[in-house]
Each structure stands twice: as C-alpha cells, then as structure tokens.
Design a protein around this nucleic acid. Sequence first.
DNA 1: AGCCTGACCTAGG
DNA 2: TCCTAGGCCAGGC
Length: 112
Amino acid sequence: MNDFQEMVYQVVRLIPNGRVTSYGAIAKYLGSSKSSRMVGWTMNRSHQQEVYVPAHRVVNRVGLLTGKHFFGSENAMADLLKQEGVIVVDDQIQNFDQVFWDPQKELGDDMI
DNA sequence: AGCCTGACCTAGG
DNA sequence: TCCTAGGCCAGGC
C-alpha cells in the first residue's frame, strides 16, 4: 500500500457523518489535483480495507453517486447516505453545496 | 512491451 | 453552453 492510497483513506475517514466530499477535492487536498482519477481507483479497493472507510461519502463533483455499483445492492450507497440525513434523489445528492465537505477548507493544509 | 480502461476534473474552443 | 482533449497511473489482457 503506497502513501497516496493511505492518505486517501485517512481523509475519507475524517468526513463527518452526514457530509460528503468529491474525488477531486481529496486529490487537491493531497497536493495532486490532477489525480482525481486515482482517488476513484483507490476507493475501489476501500472495501477490502480492514479499517472501515466510509466510501459512500465520496461522490463526484456535482453530487452524483457514480460509485454505487461497487456497493452490495443497487441502492446501498444511497441508503447509507439517507441514514445519515443526506437527501438523495435519482442518485443525485440534494442541496449538495450545503452537504459538501471540503477537506482543504475544514482541515487546512497542515496534513500534507 | 503496448493498448485499453476506469468510483474524475479542468481548460480551451 | 456543449464538446473535446489531456493529465493521472494501476491493472488486465
């Protein structure tokens, strides 16, 4: 497991209950804004991690649940979010700007 | 060894 | 505003 992937999991674990962030925001926070695709790839392996990673709190930049197929059932990801109070309609998070959690803004740059 | 494919995003036309 | 190309890089074939 390389450092980048480890960092990704660290940040995802810091996402508060009922909030979400995007692949690009994580990539940017880790100092490589162009590696958002790698974040997505890394999230694919997140289910195999021994320590829990709330992968359902990571969506794409417009609030669409693009990773839902990697959860058990068709609505597993949306259900997890709904349990946390996030409103999801047709795989689209409602009030996305209010629910969005920006690591750069919330945590600062001191983690890098 | 290439070629292709992604849970993505931004810039430029 | 919509569309395209490019950057990223691990893994499958």
